Simulated scan of single mutants.
Amino acid sequence: MSSLHDHGIFKFPQAGVINSSADRRWRNLGAEVRAHPACEIPDICSTQMEITLALKGTPSGVVHRRGDGRFQSTAVRSGTLWFCPIGVQEDSIRITEPLPEILHLYLPEHQFATAGELTSQPVASGDIAYLADVADEFVRQVCMRVLQEMRHETAAGDLLVEQLSMTLTLHLLSRYSGNGLIESSTEVNGALSPVRRNRVIDYVEENLEADLTVAELAEVACLSRYHFARSFKAALGQSPSEYVANRRLLLGQKLLEDPTLSLAEIAFRCRFSSQAAFGRAFRRHTGMYPGDYRRRRS
């Protein structure tokens, strides 16, 4: 199975990577920030749905591109958005001057296929239009939340990004394709029932030290993953990612009371990508770094 970052590596060989989600356990969405030189990009057929956001604009920079015969010329301002769906053949991309900070999000085809459970017909990334200079503040805000998670890892960032990828997929299909999303009237649209809620909570507690996904929590609740997150929040007042993050940080506090465990081991058991990321998240949660917390408790 190819990496979510393979497309960016192949498409932008001249662009340096500033930040990347490659070392995270994210599912269904990859992200990276690149610095692009003035250049021409080789011909490429998109293998992932690509959303591009200019984090910093330039005074006179322009991106000229042609995909499936459609030519677009776009001034690069802070907040400029581009979409390139899967299967679009881009045979001409020219960047007129260096672009210092560009965010790229990548969504795989199977993410769109699973959204078909909410529609009356099959859906795919290719249903979405090839667009430049998109005026969509919702997409910008999702991009910025993904960027924040990439720069400042949280205790359940994998769940958060999975939720964001689902939300973004449905938004793109609803607004930029010809497929209308028709939700099943048989789904539960309110809060989780007490039985379902307790079943999910028990499952989370039993698996705090393992990778968790929205899909498997939804399966425990016997709901589709597209309905589970809002039903969970209606029942507990927190999103699944917020709930799991809080439980993992409380687990971290408990583990810190065991002097035989190293900080690196505790970080791993709380599902962080590094000890440093655990330290920063723990400090945001408690006001002190793990080492200071351990010394104070001892």
Rank of each mutant, 00 (worst) to 15 (best):
E257S: 10
E257Q: 11
E257H: 14
D258E: 11
D258K: 02
D258W: 05
P259Y: 03
P259A: 02
P259D: 13
P259V: 08
P259Q: 12
P259W: 05
P259L: 12
P259I: 07
T260L: 09
T260W: 03
L261I: 12
L261V: 13
L261G: 04
L261H: 01
L261N: 15
L261R: 06
S262T: 15
S262I: 11
S262M: 12
S262G: 07
L263S: 14
A264H: 01
A264S: 10
A264T: 08
A264D: 05
A264P: 00
A264F: 03
E265K: 11
E265Y: 14
E265F: 14
E265V: 15
I266E: 00
I266P: 01
I266Y: 00
I266V: 03
A267C: 01
A267P: 03
F268Y: 07
F268A: 12
F268S: 15
F268K: 08
R269L: 14
R269H: 09
R269M: 15
R269N: 12
R269G: 05
C270N: 09
C270P: 09
C270D: 09
R271P: 08
R271N: 10
R271Q: 09
F272G: 00
F272R: 02
F272C: 01
F272Q: 01
F272D: 01
F272S: 02
S273V: 02
S273T: 14
S273Y: 02
S274F: 05
S274N: 12
S274K: 12
S274G: 15
Q275I: 03
Q275F: 03
Q275K: 06
Q275E: 13
Q275G: 02
Q275T: 06
A276C: 05
A276L: 10
A276F: 04
A276N: 15
A276M: 08
A276D: 10
A276K: 14
A277M: 08
A277N: 07
F278Q: 08
F278M: 01
F278S: 04
G279Q: 10
G279S: 15
G279M: 04
R280D: 12
A281R: 01
A281G: 00
A281L: 06
A281N: 08
A281E: 07
A281Q: 05
F282Q: 04
F282T: 01
F282P: 00
F282E: 06
F282V: 01
R283T: 06
R283L: 11
R283C: 09
R283I: 00
R284A: 10
R284W: 11
R284E: 12
H285Q: 08
H285M: 05
T286H: 07
T286E: 06
T286V: 02
G287V: 11
G287E: 06
G287C: 13
G287Y: 04
M288V: 15
M288E: 09
Y289R: 12
Y289Q: 15
Y289C: 03
Y289E: 12
Y289G: 11
